[in-house]
């Protein structure tokens, strides 16, 4: 890594990967696609701050069930600013895409863990929180301006917050922080924003699958956005989760339920997907219902768990299964 970009020698390779991903993604028939996060080779959490000169690599560790950890950078001096915004990935993807693009960004609450416990002399925690919100709003605004049809804020740390602090205080604080940032958008913009939650898929493992959605979902639906992308496929008791969603869903919300489990090496069949959608439709009004994958296919530089062929086979199953369900539900 040099400067704010990648090694120029790798650029043509990444470019080819993005183009291929988009071609394959479009080939699945998905009405909305992403760039597969090909350029977030660091990971989905810290891509925006990797390489910041005022950080050290010895930040907090996010432990995963499989035993590995993702260690965050630690901020050592202020002021804080992103090193890169996700709209640069979007810009590149837009060159090849022919269908609407969704861009994922990391939430401010996830990045709030950059600031160390003992504080930073001369750079207060309050100032950091302000800088963080400004940077997040900047990133999302740039993505919207560049033409993302939706911007999905990754809030994978929601469940993690419950795990770290079962009292719920930390989760409430995360919700507050994200809502403070969301308040800076217009209602029209917020209709194009969504929040994604999952137990944190990484190397076919999770960091918080053991946290009950019941501790998360009531707070999650307090987030002031129009769209929710909720991992569901890998949940052991999907009906229970659907009941919770129904209980907290507001008329202005749209919920995209996970019907594909990326960390499951088996490719779901379209019929399985169809059945999952039909099941969800019993709890969520069809007009407010959408489908998604539980999580991304984690194409990060050190995650080789899922092949590209598997990933697109799963996505194709989602598209086909959703279409089957739509026909069954009489949705045009």
């Amino acid at each position: 890594m040099r400067g704010a970009g990648s090694d120029p020698a790798l650029d043509p390779l990444y470019d080819a990967a993005v183009r291929e991903t988009i071609e394959l993604f479009e080939a699945t028939g998905s009405p909305v696609i992403t760039d597969g996060e090909q350029r977030k080779y660091h990971n989905f959490w810290t891509y925006s701050v990797e390489g910041l000169p005022n950080t050290r690599p010895d930040g907090f560790a996010i432990p995963f069930a499989a035993g590995h950890v993702r260690r965050m950078p630690r901020l050592v001096t202020g002021p804080f600013a992103y090193r890169r915004y996700a709209d640069r990935y979007l810009e590149q993807a837009l060159r090849y895409a022919r269908v609407p693009l969704k861009q994922a960004v990391i939430s401010p609450s996830a990045l709030s863990l950059l600031y160390p416990e003992q504080g930073i002399p001369g750079y207060s925690r309050d100032t950091f929180i302000e800088d963080l919100m400004r940077e997040h709003v900047t990133e999302v605004s740039r993505c919207l301006e560049h033409g993302a049809c939706k911007v999905q804020i990754d809030f994978t740390e929601g469940r993690l917050a419950v795990k770290i602090d079962p009292s719920g205080e930390l989760l409430a604080s995360f919700i507050d922080l994200n809502n403070l940032a969301l308040a800076r958008f217009t209602s029209g913009q917020r209709e194009r924003l969504g929040v994604h939650t999952c137990p944190g898929g990484d190397r076919d493992s999770t960091h918080s699958a053991d946290v009950d959605y019941a501790d998360l979902l009531p707070a999650l639906f307090q987030l002031n956005v129009g769209n929710f992308y909720i991992a569901l496929a890998a949940e052991p008791d999907r009906v229970r989760v659907l009941e919770m969603i129904r209980a907290h869903l507001k008329p202005e919300h749209r919920v995209f339920v996970g019907v594909i489990s990326p960390i499951d090496p088996r490719v779901e069949t379209p019929e399985e997907v169809r059945d999952r959608v039909l099941q969800a439709a019993k709890y969520i009004p069809v007009a407010q219902l959408g489908t998604t994958d539980d999580c991304g296919f984690s194409p990060f530089c050190d995650d080789l768990s899922t092949t590209r062929a598997t990933a697109f086979a799963k996505i194709r199953a989602r598209v086909q299964g959703t279409a089957l369900a739509a026909r069954a539900l009489g949705v045009p």
Partner: peptide
Amino acid sequence: RLRSAALKNAESILAA
């Protein structure tokens, strides 16, 4: 430490 840091952040978020 992670919990402690996060909860200290929570204070700042509350202030904000």
